[in-house]
């Protein structure tokens, strides 16, 4: 239907999350039509990103500098570390401006079924940071899944000898959520995590 180069572009765009072959084809058509306004800047942005993206050696975040902007920011509270599964979770917390401390990206969760053990995660780095950086509190912000919470329990045990305050995110009713529409698991977790007003 189109030249090899265009088909190649469609093929790669279709691999991105949220895009299928049809939507990738529409995106490519738009890029073709708006070459100067979209295609050229996009090409330049992709090349620049490819050349400058780095993984922060301290926390595992992805940024264009190492250490990342969060680790390098002196206004951040270095005594609080929030542990997240992936960079996407870190970005979500940053978007919400939910934390003034620093982060630590594990790069996944413990998963016996997928053969992911403690060695495959960025746990040694977390232990070293907690020992060396004057950390007071570690917030375990892993997902409320069996694997996420198994990982949280593991980290809790790992850090127990360091006498830190270890907290985890609350599980329960989301803001704007109506009880009638919540799944049973969330309701059970919310009921178990209830607190005195």
């Amino acid at each position: 239907m189109a030249g090899d180069e265009i088909e190649e572009l469609v093929k790669y765009l279709a691999r991105l999350p949220g895009l299928g072959p049809r939507s990738a084809r529409r995106a490519v058509l738009t890029l073709m039509r708006r070459r100067e306004a979209l295609l050229d800047p996009l090409t330049a942005a992709l090349t620049a990103a490819r050349d400058s993206i780095k993984t922060c050696h301290i926390c595992g975040n992805i940024d264009t500098q190492d250490p990342c902007a969060i680790c390098a920011d002196p206004r951040r509270d270095g005594s609080v570390i929030c542990v997240v599964e992936d960079v996407g979770d870190l970005w979500a917390l940053e978007r919400a401006k939910a934390l003034k401390g620093r982060y630590h990206v594990l790069g996944g969760t413990l998963s016996a079924l997928d053969g992911i053990g403690p060695e495959e995660l960025n746990l040694a780095g977390l232990h070293a940071r907690c020992k060396a950086e004057g950390v007071r509190e570690v917030i375990l912000a892993t997902n409320a899944t069996v694997e996420g919470q198994t990982t949280a329990h593991y980290i809790s045990d790992m850090l127990a000898p360091l006498s830190l305050t270890i907290t985890r995110l609350a599980h329960g009713v989301p803001v704007g959520g109506e009880l009638d529409y919540l799944d049973d698991g969330t309701l059970i977790a919310a009921m178990r995590s209830r607190r005195e007003t």
Binding site: A144, V146, Q149, H171, D184, G185, T186, A189, R192
Partner: peptide
């Protein structure tokens, strides 16, 4: 069709969560 969420009942209990897994 969702039924009883046993996993949610033990998320905060390390021993039972490990046992369920």
């Amino acid at each position: 069709d969702p039924g009883r969420a046993y996993a949610a009942e033990v998320l905060t209990d390390q021993v039972l969560l490990a046992g369920l897994s």
